[in-house]
Simulated scan of single mutants.
Amino acid sequence: MAVIYDAVRTPRGKGKAEGGLAAKKPDELVAALAEALSERGAGALSPDALILGAVGQVGAQGGNIALVSKFRAALPDSTAAVAINNFCVSGLTAMGQAHAMVDAGQADAVLAGGVEMMSRVPFMADKADFYTDGTLPLRSRYLLVALAADRLAEDQNISREALDAAALTSQKRAAAAEGTALVASRIAVNGLDREECLRVGTAESLAAMEPAFGAAAAHYRGILGRDIDHRHTIAHAPPIADGAGLALIAAEGAIDARPRARIIASAEVGGDPAESLTASFAALDKVLQRADLSLDDMDRIEFMEAFAVSIVQFLRDRDVSPERVNVSGGHLAKGHPLGASGAILLSTLLDALDEAEGRYGLVVAAGASGAGSAIIVERLG
């Protein structure tokens, strides 16, 4: 059974030219995390593979970003390097692939994670035909995720007040986590040692904000199928960010170090593209079934705050204690570096489990057009 020897992450920097990580290249973020893994007890890294998620695989993240990161991190020539794009679940998908390889005996040790430098490679920078292809069936055409979130909030009867409350909870928890064991595996890079996107508002300031995405609706009117009540503000959307996460996943005993957790199960799913963000629920159900566990067994959960509607729907519709979910805040407060996010969440989960001395933990991620991924781990305390 595959174990996680360690998992680390960068802080999330603002995805702008003046952001705290923007002076670095994406492969330099990965190399910094690989060095941290080595220094934290994994020793000299000699993995069979490096699997790296990234959504914008052009420019600074083109040319096989996993291969470039392998060179930057001075990994052995024998290390295979694979870059994957599964939209916003890419980093967690990479870890699921590593889990599958190790469990199948195809690798003894794999470095897996994700990176996204949105300061260098903006959202939709690949200019894919998919984003504008009118020949696809209507339900399969690309819909801007913010608009999918607005439509989902209306369909699910999730109020603006509930969205505000979710954003404020995320912000307050993220601020409270600074300087605690909940950030023990966050590695300072380029002098940035905090979540740069974090701002803590008030109930009044959040309530005063205007919905942010109505102007974009005209371009997607045919896909939306109707006029919608736009409810998400900028505070309900994760900030554009730079960041990376990386884990060393290996067969038990393959590394001369103490593992932090055992991977119990992982799951990848596709979902209804018209409902976009809801595949996370299918991934959640599949991974729990595979593990023969329930949400009640989970001591800590990291559920991707893709937009505020996602976390509100999860907490409303599933029998789970909010005190176990996103205890150090989430994407709404700290930002969303696309292909890195799932990997960052797994590292965050391990810190939360350690802090609580819990046993089981779950991470769930969602991406546009029906991408979902989930992993359950058991802490080895």
Rank of each mutant, 00 (worst) to 15 (best):
D133C: 04
G134A: 15
T135M: 08
T135F: 14
L136E: 03
P137R: 09
P137N: 05
L138C: 04
R139C: 04
R139I: 07
R139M: 05
S140W: 13
S140Y: 14
R141D: 02
L144D: 00
L144R: 04
L144W: 13
A146K: 05
A148Y: 05
A149G: 03
D150N: 05
L152D: 01
L152A: 02
E154H: 06
D155F: 15
D155M: 10
Q156N: 06
N157D: 14
I158A: 01
I158E: 02
S159F: 13
S159M: 13
R160T: 03
R160C: 04
A162K: 14
D164N: 07
A167P: 03
Q171W: 06
Q171G: 00
R173L: 02
A174L: 00
A175V: 02
A175G: 02
A175S: 01
A176Y: 02
G179H: 01
G179C: 01
T180S: 02
A181F: 10
L182N: 00
L182H: 00
V183G: 00
V183T: 07
A184F: 12
A184H: 10
S185E: 09
N190H: 13
N190P: 03
L192A: 01
D193E: 12
R194Q: 13
E195V: 01
E196F: 11
A203H: 11
E204L: 11
E204H: 15
E204M: 13
L206F: 15
E210D: 11
E210R: 15
A212T: 10
G214L: 07
A215E: 14
A216Q: 12
A217K: 07
A217Q: 12
H219P: 04
Y220Q: 05
Y220T: 00
R221Q: 11
G222E: 09
I223D: 06
I223V: 11
G225N: 11
R226H: 08
I228T: 07
D229K: 14
H230D: 06
H232S: 05
H232G: 04
T233L: 15
A237N: 08
A237K: 14
P238F: 10
P239G: 04
I240Q: 06
I240G: 01
I240H: 08
A241I: 11
A241F: 09
D242W: 15
D242R: 10
G243S: 08
A244K: 15
A244Y: 11
A244T: 03
G245L: 10
G245H: 12
G245N: 08
L246W: 12
L246F: 12
A247H: 08
L248Q: 05
L248S: 00
L248H: 10
L248I: 06
I249P: 00
A250H: 08
A250T: 04
A254V: 03
D256V: 11
D256F: 11
D256A: 14
D256T: 08
P259S: 05
P259A: 05
P259F: 11
A261D: 03
R262D: 02
